[in-house]
Design a protein around this nucleic acid. Structure first.
Lengths: 202, 202
DNA sequence: CGAATTCCATAGCGATCGTTGTAAAATTTC
DNA sequence: GAAATTTTACAACGATCGCTATGGAATTCG
């Protein structure tokens, strides 16, 4: 028994409209993007934005969540799909090199760059993104632990340090992409970074 | 024939007063730091700040210049002081691990983080910092070229890619420091990163 | 001393920030 | 068609932004 929704219908596709805020927050960050910028890019008025998405913070969090499921999904996908942990990390770095320099969207990673500058009022936003990055490092560490337990890494491997290393490389690639590095340059960086991986036991 | 300056003397030490803006911009970034934040931390009123330092942009640029000569000087110092290029880069990464996690000042590097989020009005500020980072990559590349010419690196070494790699590692370490990585963890990252260096000819 | 000069704090400028009150427009229900 | 409901655009809210006009306080010169 579903009845059609009453009242004036929304004049825009809520889901499709999320793309513009994503691109703006990605390029300029949370504080660098004003509500006026958002409404202008989306072609709607402020009350429509607030009715559909809540306030600026709520919209931002929804954008970040969605980013993780779309533009940012390559990371876990590469790690999950690989046959072994080593090629998983190698594929993840390679995918980052391509994604971070894709000309169809802003350079780098939204989660890394969108809230590095923050006033006192927006400290919770930067904290939200920080926690996501920290969780990602821990995810790396977990995968490396599994690999070590399975014999794919030497017993004494410091998986924590290795996880921080890979996270740093990814974040450095994001920064380099924003500074103008090319896809080929970042692919070289990705390849260089894998030199750290301990030789597989023969 | 120097005559004493007339008029009411300045009530604060201009040079010493620069530290507070440095720490604020370092922690919160250009747009995340308001003039009100600055004057409150410096203990002076807005007209005093504008008379002594010009507008917010001018103050920021002076802060960045000064940062390069003080907190950020470790980088070129480590590279310059080393006996060979390899230990130079190793020492630079090691110094970054220590400096970026020094509890006496904000984590990470001001040049990397202080203007990643920017509105249309402050695009020139982010561009200024970007150019400084790009210049730094080129400086890396120049040092690596010298090393290759001197036989310290194999003839076929892609020094450009290697420079981008080291820049990415440094920037990733800065990000990790801001996210809470410890000195020891970053020192491990620095050590890992040097695994890329080609074996010296015997 | 008075005059000139320089810096100080108060207070407020216009612009923009994120957000919302109001009322008209557009739809479904009855 | 009338009532109910939801979205729309216009306009404006208080707060904060970067910045400055004004006038008093503190110093040196003559």
């Amino acid at each position: 028994m579903t009845t059609t929704k009453r009242g004036r219908p929304r004049s825009f596709d809520r889901d499709a409209a999320l793309l513009q805020p994503t691109l703006l927050f990605w390029q300029h960050g949370y504080e660098g993007t004003s509500v006026s910028d958002l409404t202008a890019a989306m072609g709607i008025s402020p009350p429509s934005l607030y009715a559909a998405f809540g306030d600026k913070r709520t919209l931002f969090v929804e954008v970040v969540d969605r980013y993780g499921d779309t533009f940012g999904a390559f990371m876990n996908k590469a790690l999950d799909d690989a046959s072994d942990t080593r090629t998983g990390f190698a594929g993840m770095l390679e995918a980052a090199a391509v994604s971070y320099t894709d000309p169809h969207h802003p350079a780098g990673c939204l989660v890394i760059t969108a809230a590095t500058n923050y006033s006192t009022q927006t400290a919770d936003i930067k904290e939200d993104l920080r926690e996501r990055r920290v969780a990602n490092v821990r995810s790396f560490e977990g995968r490396l632990n599994t690999a070590r337990a399975g014999g794919a890494l030497p017993e004494g491997t410091d998986t924590r340090a290795l996880a921080v290393y890979f996270a740093a490389v990814v974040q450095g690639m994001s920064q380099q992409a924003r500074d103008g590095a090319t896809t080929a340059e970042l692919q070289q960086v990705a390849e260089f970074a894998m030199a750290i991986w301990p030789e597989p036991a023969p």
